[in-house]
Simulated assay, not measured.
Amino acid sequence: MHRPISRTLLALLGAGLLGSAAQAAETDTYGWVEKATIEPWGTAVKVKLDTGALTSSMQAEEIETFERDGEDWVRFTVEVEDEETDDVVSKTFERPVFRDLRVRGAGGEESRPVVLMTLCMGETLHEEQFSLEDRDNMNYPVLLGRRTIQDLGSVETTRTFLHEPECNDDSPVKSHSGKEYDEDIGV
């Protein structure tokens, strides 16, 4: 024998289901500015999700290319404001050059080294290609371009800081490094 379900119970069930769906949508939604940590350093920085840029970009100074074991490498210093402490901190990295990016703009054409770096956003580690440039005079030391954004989820253009970086040794890693990139593009 079937008993009718009350409207109140249906409403409560519906609200629970809708609440779960809203939570899932929120998890896959990012603000146009988020906080991330540069790994394995752990320094928290503001990251702008920039739909106008194809390639991601990171603040770098003292960019110096050199050769190691017959391969091109780059040494660079990242100097940023740590969003957790408000202190200006810096760290020097050495990475293999993943590729060179030719950027064309109003000022002409320039070449930038691109390296693989890892960011923690939310509970996920993202390995991404970053072009290195001095972004000292810009508001955001890190830009995530469309090639990374397309794998994150949706971007809510009216909101910021929807995710705190909370990665650990068991965090999933998403690699955006295997994608085909056209070297003759601007960012």
Rank of each mutant, 00 (worst) to 15 (best):
P4S: 13
G145R: 06
E127T: 14
E109T: 15
D169M: 10
G145N: 05
G108H: 12
R159P: 05
D136W: 13
V97I: 13
F76A: 02
Y181D: 08
E110D: 15
V88A: 05
P96I: 00
S175A: 07
I63S: 03
F93Q: 03
D170S: 14
W73S: 01
R75V: 02
L17M: 11
S111K: 13
R147W: 02
T158S: 14
L13A: 07
I185T: 12
M58R: 01
L13M: 09
K46I: 02
W32M: 07
W73P: 06
M117W: 03
G108R: 12
T85M: 07
R68Q: 14
S177R: 00
T51I: 10
Q23E: 14
R75C: 01
D82F: 04
C120I: 13
V103A: 09
L101D: 02
E183H: 12
S20K: 11
G145D: 03
M138H: 11
E71L: 13
H2W: 11
S175F: 06
E109S: 14
D87H: 08
V47R: 04
A21I: 12
G19N: 06
S177L: 12
G108C: 12
T55N: 11
D87F: 09
L54W: 09
F161Y: 13
R3N: 15
T43N: 05
R7H: 10
R135D: 03
R75K: 10
T77Y: 00
G42Q: 00
D72P: 11
L10P: 01
L119E: 01
R135F: 03
K35D: 01
V173D: 02
S57I: 09
E164M: 07
L116C: 13
T29L: 06
P113H: 03
P165H: 08
L144Q: 04
T37H: 00
P4M: 12
R112F: 08
F161C: 08
G145L: 04
P113F: 03
E94T: 05
V74A: 00
T118R: 14
E180H: 10
W73K: 04
T8D: 05
G16C: 03
A15E: 02
T37K: 00
E62G: 10
E84V: 14
I63W: 03
Y30D: 03
V155L: 05
P113K: 01
L49V: 08
D136M: 15
E81G: 06
L132R: 04
V142G: 02
A22K: 11
T77C: 07
T29D: 05
R112S: 04
W73A: 02
L12Q: 04
G108K: 14
E164K: 05
L12P: 00
G145Q: 04
V78L: 03
T92I: 04
E166R: 14
A53F: 08
G16A: 08
K91T: 05
D182P: 09
E156H: 09
A53L: 10
V115K: 01
